[in-house]
Design a binder for these strands. Structure first.
Length: 897
RNA sequence: GCGCGAUUAGCUCAGGGGUAGAGCACAUGCUUCACACGCAUGGGGUCGUUGGUUCAAAUCCAACAUCGCGCACCA
């Protein structure tokens, strides 16, 4: 055994152990192994991102599952990697270009820009991977993947081609969500609705055939009125029937526009009259289609206004144009009034600017395997934990909309479609496009055409999620796939249930014929202490690396796991992480204490079975029972993915049971004058508990557990704790149950008595260290054998046994009624009768309150006749014991005079 | 509007039909020979409201309130 320093210094051991594990290949999954397989595919973090607390939570859970599975003898693959995060990465590289060279991507051109993006990725791309390593993640780094790796990209393209050939991918001119910040289309999922304080502008349009007569219209977006091509009312609205078939003047640019009737209009809202701007609103677009209205787009792609809006608006920003349009309406006498109004505005998830509904030519996917994906989750073939996310998933799946998969970006998987030169422009502007209508002028293939000089490739790239939906299998080569696919568990946040989980299920079914995973565990979302979601823009997200420096990776892991309930959001509080560190230190020092006692006569892995059973103290049997229960409870909690419960079990056992009770109670055997047999037995139990405990702890705190395993000399073969199998035998094998029950009962009674004695001392302001003598009227004979331990625990100089009531202490002494009997604490000075009166009186009050409750129950005939017999019996016993206690307290109070 | 979740000690949260729990914070006392990242002792809660089911409700059910989230959305 090597010497253990006084305080635990994580920085000195964590990185070292990580290196040793990696060098020994501990994380590598052997596809040719005959063991039962277990696999997890990491949710690939953004390659240019940095670790957040969300990642810490998510990846710690995966690491726990992976490490536990290894210790259960499984062949474990935890497959790591990153995704290319199209919009985010491109935005970062563009910002960098702008800042350092004052250039745009167009200044560089596509090829150079992509080259820059790769440089950026190579420079910053491994930060998050390094951070995961600091956290202790046992990923198989030899299998690390990136969504733009050559192999992976090929699979993405093959997928596109297959879906195109199956008629599921099509091109069409549709109303899509357009991000004016990133200048690309987005999927519906990438739009975040936010409530905004806006204004509702009431304006009036003049009727063409009746000058001086006006229609009042309410709108939140006056800047789009230049694109109005109609006015709509509800056909059932009695106020407006007379308007149908007539027309109104759009004020500017002045134009006659028709008034149409459409069911979509809500007569209750505003004035019941809607201005219809088919180019800039999805609902208006639909109305326009139904009534054959013209489509006039007044915006440029960056949401400045174009020439259609009129000269005075051209080039103006959309929000500036809003002000200007309002001013202009006012000056024309057409603005009626303005009201404050709160409505929901769609924002781009990545660029955080309001999206514009915009008609454009995009690629869409009709999702494959929708029914199969619904069935898989509905039937629990794929289990969701917590189960309630099933409902969210099913609701989305049942209302699924086609997926806009093209993005107007350069960084990503370029769409594998080529147009014949000369025909390209026409094909790209066609209303729709498929292989048939294009004839031989379209090439859709994993390989470019043989005569590339005659072709033009589609400029768009694919949505990043169109690559990550293949992640669980596209990351695996054939032997790996054969062995580890489908994967076992997926650990992710509920915020990407549509983005990723649902799509992976459909892709898995479509391309592999299998569900990609068996279980999906949804973590909570980490919020700050005020309940706000952590984000970089709010600056409320601590850097996990700082936390690791401060508290150690194990401290961070343990702290975060202890507050991570299943599927509930987590309010982050740094004191929790501090707790994790403190716990690590506690472990360290308990091990240090063990080490100071010197070696035992046997190695740590042996069990208690070869010790003479009668050498085991009641404290030993008690803690061994608790260890046995701990192992069982942990196993159950793992089966239910109750990670916080496991952390709590580990914490309570070690701190409250092992250190506070057992460790303190065996200290007498480590004194110089101790009996060697008892000492040996205590050491052996100590070692059995520690070694078995470290096995349980390891997935949560891998570094410190490994370090202690080595320092205590547990790890002869195999060398690493992380490769050691969990014991499947009970530590109590062969121990008669009645003996255990008796020992636990006695130890429990003694611990409680010790606590009461400490309390008695404290009530009399006696320092815990002040050795006091007690006189005991024992309730049980065995107590005589345990007075040494009791003295140690209670801080007593000695305990004298009274031989009966006659032996009661001379004079008055404060006393405590304990499960071991009545203890008197003779004081040197005079007893403070008044204080003692108060103390006992308070206790008596409590006892009487309890007694009242129990008595009321037992006097209720309905209770005694209907409640289960054992409950009634328990109440009877409770009443008896409260009664006894009350009588004793009464006597004591009387005795005070 | 629909759906989901939360409401327990000052704070952060466990628990869950049959004596209300933890950590932190607080108070008091400890340089007790593993640990002050510690030890000991203590104070502190009618478990959101109102009904219902039950011998028994903080726990199950319903409604309501408040907060949060998701989906949809009336311009």
């Amino acid at each position: 055994m090597a010497e253990i320093p006084k305080g635990y210094l994580p920085a000195e051991v964590e990185e070292d152990w990580y290196r040793r594990w990696v060098e020994a290949g501990c994380f590598h999954a052997d596809a040719s192994s005959s063991r039962e397989g277990y696999s997890i595919a990491i949710p690939p973090p953004n390659v240019t991102g940095i670790l957040t607390l969300g990642h810490v939570l998510n990846n710690t859970i995966q690491d726990i599952l992976a490490r536990r599975a290894r210790m259960q003898g499984k062949e474990v693959l935890w497959l790591p990697g990153t995704d290319h995060a199209g919009i985010a990465t491109q935005a970062k590289v563009e910002a960098h270009l702008r800042k350092t060279e004052k250039k745009t991507r167009h200044d560089l051109g596509r090829e150079d820009f992509i080259e820059r993006a790769w440089q950026w990725k190579n420079k910053h791309g491994n930060i998050i991977i390094k951070q995961l390593k600091r956290l202790g993640c046992s990923c198989d780094w030899e299998r690390e993947r990136f969504t733009m790796d050559h192999d992976y990209s090929s699979q993405v393209q093959e997928t596109f081609v297959a879906l195109f050939n199956a008629g599921l991918i099509y091109r069409g001119k549709r109303m899509v969500n357009w991000c004016p910040g990133s200048l690309t289309a987005l999927s519906d999922e990438e739009v975040i609705m936010k409530p905004r304080k806006s204004k509702l502008y009431y304006m009036r349009y003049e009727l063409v055939d009746s000058p001086g007569e006006y229609l009042e219209i309410a709108t939140t977006r006056p800047e789009t009125l230049m694109g109005d091509t109609g006015v709509a009312v509800n056909p059932k609205d009695p106020r407006y029937g007379k308007l149908l078939g007539r027309s109104a003047w759009r004020p500017f640019p002045r134009k006659e526009i028709p008034i149409v009737a459409d069911e979509h209009i809500d007569p209750e809202f505003g004035t019941g009259v809607l201005k219809v701007t088919p180019a800039h609103d999805k609902a208006d677009f639909d109305i326009g289609q139904r009534h054959g209205l013209e489509i006039v787009d007044v915006f440029n792609p960056d949401a400045t206004l174009n020439a259609n809006a009129g000269e005075e608006f051209e080039g103006m920003d959309r929000f500036e144009a809003r002000e200007k349009a309002v001013e202009k309406l006012e000056s024309l006498g057409l603005l009626v009034r303005v009201e404050d109004y709160e409505n929901n505005v769609g924002y781009s998830e990545r660029a955080d600017v309001p999206v514009e509904p915009r008609i454009s030519m995009q690629w869409f996917l009709r999702y494959p395997q929708v029914q199969g994906a619904i069935a898989a989750v509905e039937s629990d073939a794929i289990r969701f934990i917590p189960e309630r996310w099933k409902k969210t998933y099913l609701h989305w799946m049942e209302n699924i909309q086609d997926w806009c998969i093209s993005r107007q970006l350069w960084w990503g998987h370029r769409i594998p479609v080529w147009y014949r030169k000369g025909k390209a422009e026409a094909l790209q502007n066609a209303e729709s496009l498929d292989a048939e209508t294009a004839g031989g002028d379209l090439h859709v293939g994993h390989q470019p055409p043989d005569d590339p000089e005659n072709w033009v490739q589609d400029p768009d790239v694919l949505d990043t999620w169109f690559s990550s939906w293949l992640w669980p299998f596209a990351t695996m080569d054939d032997p790996t796939r054969k062995r580890f696919y489908p994967t076992t568990d997926l650990v992710t946040g509920p915020d990407i249930i549509f983005f990723w989980v649902a799509r992976m299920i459909m892709a898995g079914l479509q391309f592999t014929g299998h569900n990609p995973f068996a279980n999906v565990f949804f973590t909570g979302i980490i919020r700050d202490i005020k309940g706000l979601k952590m984000s970089k823009s709010l600056g409320n997200s601590p850097d996990p690396l700082d936390l690791i420096d401060k508290y150690g990776a194990d401290g961070l892991r343990f702290g975060i796991m202890r507050i991570a309930p299943t599927g509930q959001d987590i309010r982050y509080d740094e004191t929790q992480i501090e707790e994790g560190r403190n716990f690590a230190n506690k472990l360290w020092n308990a091990a240090r204490y063990r080490q100071m006692q010197g070696a035992g006569s046997s190695d740590l892995q042996s069990s208690i079975s070869d010790l003479p059973s009668d050498s085991l103290s009641i404290y030993a049997l008690d803690i061994l029972s608790k260890l046995d229960a701990l192992e069982k409870n942990i196993a159950e909690a793992y089966a239910r993915y109750r990670f916080n419960e496991i952390a709590q079990l580990l914490y309570d056992f070690f701190w409250s049971e092992f250190c506070d009770l057992f460790l303190e109670s065996v200290k007498i055997h480590f004194r110089e004058d101790a009996d060697p047999g008892a000492r040996e037995s205590a050491l052996r139990v100590f070692d059995v508990i520690l070694s078995r405990y470290l096995l349980q702890l390891h997935p949560y705190m891998p570094h410190i557990s490994e370090e202690l395993w080595e320092k205590l000399g547990c790890g002869a073969n195999p060398p690493f704790l992380m490769q050691t199998q969990l014991r499947t035998d009970s530590v109590l094998d062969g121990m008669p149950a009645d003996r255990l029950a008796e020992a636990s009962q006695r130890a429990g009674a003694l611990y409680q008595a010790a606590s009461q004695l400490r309390n008695l001392k404290a009530e009399y302001n006696l320092a815990a260290s002040k050795a006091v003598r007690f006189l005991l009227e024992p309730a049980e004979e065995w107590v005589a054998d345990e007075t040494d331990t009791l003295c140690l625990l209670a801080g007593a100089a000695g305990i004298e046994l009274a031989r009966g009531a006659a032996d009661a202490p001379a004079g008055k002494a404060p006393a405590a009624i304990t499960p071991l009997g009545k203890f008197h604490m003779p004081l040197d000075g005079l007893i403070d009768v008044e204080a003692e009166h108060a103390r006992l009186g308070k206790e008596l009050q409590k006892v009487e309150a309890e007694l009242k409750k129990v008595t009321a129950k037992l006097e209720n005939e309905k209770f005694t006749s209907r409640a289960p017999a054992e409950v009634v019996e328990e109440m009877r016993q409770r009443m008896e014991s409260w009664n006894r206690r009350r009588d004793q307290l009464g006597e004591m109070i009387d005795g005070l005079g």
